[in-house]
Design a protein around this nucleic acid. Sequence first.
DNA 1: CACAATTAGTTGCACTCGCAACCGTTTGGA
DNA 2: TCCAAACGGTTGCGAGTGCAACTAATTGTG
Lengths: 153, 153
Amino acid sequence: MSTRGPGELRLELAAFVPYRLDRLAVGVSNHLSDICRARFGLDVPGWRVMAALGSRRGCTAQQIAQSTRMHKTRVSRAIAHLEERELIERASSSADRREREVRLTKAGRRMYAELVPLVLERERDLLASLPREQLGGFLAGLEALETYLGLQD
Amino acid sequence: MSTRGPGELRLELAAFVPYRLDRLAVGVSNHLSDICRARFGLDVPGWRVMAALGSRRGCTAQQIAQSTRMHKTRVSRAIAHLEERELIERASSSADRREREVRLTKAGRRMYAELVPLVLERERDLLASLPREQLGGFLAGLEALETYLGLQD
DNA sequence: CACAATTAGTTGCACTCGCAACCGTTTGGA
DNA sequence: TCCAAACGGTTGCGAGTGCAACTAATTGTG
C-alpha cells in the first residue's frame, strides 16, 4: 500500500515508485547474479548473452543487442569475454562479411543447461513469495507499464 | 500475463521477470532523469541526495546513504558536486567532529520546490497508465517482493 | 588513563559503461 | 559504374562506481 494519496505534493523516497522499482530491480538482480557469478563466473552482460544464445541456433551480435536491450559495445565486450572462455564461438557468415554468427560451444551448451534450471528456480521462488491473487495483478501491472514506456520488443 | 507456466524449463528473456524488472526500472529512471538532468543538471545520485535532504531539516552523509540505499562513496561524491553548485552546504556538527551536517541552501530549497511537483507528476502519469484495479495489485506485489528481499528500511 | 576497536567520511584504483569515432563491407542511387 | 550513405562490429576515451585503504575522531575496555 502507498502511504501517499495521488494528489499529494510531498516527496518521500521510500514511497516513491521509481525509486522502489530501481531498488527492487537491483535486489532481484543481486539475488540472481550471486549464483551466476559464484557458480559460473558470469556477470550480467555475459549471462544475458548466454540466455539469448541458448534459445536460438546462432545469431549476430546485432540480434543479441536487440533481444537483451544492451548497447552494442556492451554486447561486443561480453562476446569477447565469453569467446576467451570458449563458451561461445564465432564463424563469419558467408552472406555478409561484416557480421559473424555467434554460437554456443559444447561447453557453453553444457553451462547453459546447468544454468537455466537454477535461474528459473530463483524466479519461481521470488514469485512464490506473492500471494496467489497478487501475482496476477502484479504481472498485469508490469506488462501495462512496459507497454506505457514502449519497452516491449 | 506470463507466457510461461510455473514449472517450465525454457528460458525466454522477454518473459523472465528479473530481466523485465531491470528493463522497467531503467525505463522509468530514464523517463524521470530526462527532466532532472535537462532542467536541473542533476544525475541520479544528486537527485536522490536532494530528495533525502528536502524532507528533513539537515542530516549527515551516513543518514543519506541509509535512506537512499547508496554506497557511502557515491553519497560522498554526490555531496561534493552539489556543494560546488551551492545547492547544499555543510556545517561541522558540534557533537561529533567526524560528521558534518548537510543542509539545502536557499538555492537548493528553491530547486527542490520546483523539482518535486514535476517528479511527482511523472510518477502520477506512470501509475495512471495502470487500470484502477491493477494499481492496487501491482503496489501490493511490489511491497511483497520488497519484504521478501528485505529491502525495506 | 591508555590503547585497541569502531565510526564518519574521503580518496586511489581497477573496472564497467555509453558515446563518438572508426574500419571494413554492403547497399542504393545518380 | 561509382561513390555516398548506411550498417555490423570494435576501440579510445571520459565519466561513474564499488572496494579497499586511509585519515581523523570517538568509544569502549583493561
